[in-house]
């Protein structure tokens, strides 16, 4: 029994482009197609050993927008996020089927180097995880490993500024990143992720470990980041998704993408009853 089993979807922009057949077979409700997609997921399955965590995910992620992934615990949001920058490669038992295109290139092709991919697609984790190094070295880390550290001083400052944390740490760049508060650590991690200037930033519940003030700072930041980056953010917080995202994907239990559309549409008038129930808090 699959929620998106044989839905026939007709949306304005569901014409043209890659593997239409697959899309109609497995497409979620809503408008899974966008014209300016950077990332296109086609029938993406992910398995952990024998357990299937994601079932035929089809969605396009627009450029320079914030796309929110929501859904109940265990529905595969983190799994999907990790399959975008191939962090699932680090999990021995994880296996990915199907295609995921980044700028039209299937990142699961044999000739794709996951390290090179991750240099284009940065990541911020649920729990702030700065290195036990100085604030400066934390932000410089990506620049250094990617060999982009010609002008490291300036790049670090710019990144800290964009991550809205420069004012707070400007005169303690040599002190340890671990001495910061949780909210500051998370913004430091965002600075670390954007310093080498990726195109896409993946965020897995970046504010879930933070208090409301720190959370609202991160939210403001996410909206600003969307001016220059494509942001994909997992969140458990419905209001947060409604506030900061342009597009919302609703995953439901079992690893199915049930509906994907403009955030306003999802929150005001979702097509699926189950999505409506989930959003209004009737389950999940």
């Amino acid at each position: 029994m699959t929620a998106n089993g044989s839905q026939t979807v007709s949306t304005a922009d569901s014409s043209g482009a890659r593997s239409d057949a697959a899309m109609t077979d497995n497409a979620p409700l809503g408008s899974p197609r966008v014209d300016d997609a950077v990332i296109e997921s086609r029938d993406l399955d992910v398995f952990y050993g024998d357990d299937q965590a994601l079932h035929g995910i089809n969605m396009d992620i627009p450029e320079h927008k914030v796309t929110a992934l929501i859904g109940p615990s265990g529905c595969g949001k983190s799994t999907f996020l990790r399959s975008i920058n191939r962090m699932n490669d680090l999990i021995d038992i994880a296996r990915v089927d199907g295609d995921l295109y980044f700028h039209g290139k299937n990142i699961y092709d044999d000739d794709v180097d996951p390290v090179a991919l991750r240099r284009k697609i940065g990541m911020v984790f649920q729990k702030p995880n700065p290195f036990p190094k100085s604030i400066f070295d934390n932000v410089a880390y990506g620049l250094r490993v990617q060999g982009k550290d010609d002008d490291v001083e300036e790049q670090v400052h710019t990144a800290l500024e964009r991550a809205a944390i420069l004012d707070e740490v400007e005169d303690q760049l040599d002190s340890s990143g671990l001495d910061l508060s949780g909210g500051q650590q998370q913004r430091l991690c965002i600075a670390r992720a954007i310093a080498p200037d990726p195109e896409v930033i993946l965020m897995d519940e970046p504010a879930s470990a933070l208090d409301p003030v720190a959370t609202s700072k991160i939210e403001d930041l996410v909206e600003e980041l969307a001016e220059e980056y494509t942001v994909i953010i997992v969140t458990h917080n419905m209001q947060q998704a409604a506030r900061i995202s342009d597009k919302t994907a609703v995953f439901l239990t079992g690893g199915h993408l049930v509906e994907f559309d403009d955030t306003s549409k999802i929150f005001e008038n979702p097509e699926s009853d189950r999505v409506e129930d989930y959003i209004t808090g009737k389950f999940g």
């Binding site: 991750r118 290195f131 990617q146 991690c189 670390r192 080498p196």
Partner: peptide, 16 residues
């Protein structure tokens, strides 16, 4: 492991 993931996430190779 979170340290390792943080490093891979910023585009570091295994040896780095």
């Amino acid at each position: 492991d979170s340290m390792r993931r943080a490093s891979y996430g910023t585009g570091a190779t295994k040896w780095q």
